[in-house]
Design a binder for these strands. Sequence first.
DNA 1: CTGTATCCTTAGGGATACTG
DNA 2: CAGTATCCCTAAGGATACAG
Lengths: 141, 141
Amino acid sequence: MKRLDRKSDCAINFSLETFGDPWSLLIVRDIVFFGKKTYGDFLASEERIGTSVLANRLMALEKQGILSKSTNQADKRKEEYRLTEKGTDLIPVLFELMSWGAKYDANTGASPKVIAQLQKNRKGVIARAYTAAHKGVAFAA
Amino acid sequence: MKRLDRKSDCAINFSLETFGDPWSLLIVRDIVFFGKKTYGDFLASEERIGTSVLANRLMALEKQGILSKSTNQADKRKEEYRLTEKGTDLIPVLFELMSWGAKYDANTGASPKVIAQLQKNRKGVIARAYTAAHKGVAFAA
DNA sequence: CTGTATCCTTAGGGATACTG
DNA sequence: CAGTATCCCTAAGGATACAG
């Protein structure tokens, strides 16, 4: 095995091993697209993540420097998770996953026209998502 | 649960459930970047995928319409896997994974300058990767 | 060369109850 | 509200042998 117990030193493999599990990117999505911040927010997502899995993923993402955690000053009971720069740099990845999914998932029912428009506006969409994530608000594509 | 036993109808989740396992994108990478085509090619990859896992992933990717399989006419013993359009449309995803990995994986040792250059040339790089994949040859970024 | 067939092991994840 | 703590369980993956 390679150093650090990784399968290989390929950059793509590194990314997959860092956030390529079934849940991490859904949490990042929740932050970027829906402006979610708290444990309870994530728990309420459509995919119904379990409490232990969520705690585990949040911890891992924080340890990897993708999320940062802080206490809400207005309500000290609330812990808030935000994306670091390393985290917001996942936005282009999310965009491509969304784009591919929209094109090939029959269930979404996105029209070819909408998909083409999405891809055409790629730069602008990503830029606005970055801005929204930075402000900590939801971004509706 | 939602229809088709999916966690949700989100396009991002669809993508993750389709090719978001630890191996599928590495196989696609092997085809795009290294021009690999055969079972033996994939088996010889740095990450050392197991025989049964490989067979399983190839079958799944074929069933999903991401890969197509055909017999080499010159050597009938050889089975060749190629990317369909649905498969080559994963190239932008691969690009972003590579880009993020190059930026944050200390092991790759890519310089900020190289990374910036990569991102600046995004469109061209992706276009050339598409062309290479279409011809069935390796593409060195 | 291109896979199947087994066997075994383990990490990941559901469910649920509970705590500061 | 924001997690821990368990228990269970199964799909996914390593290893190895074998077959067409």
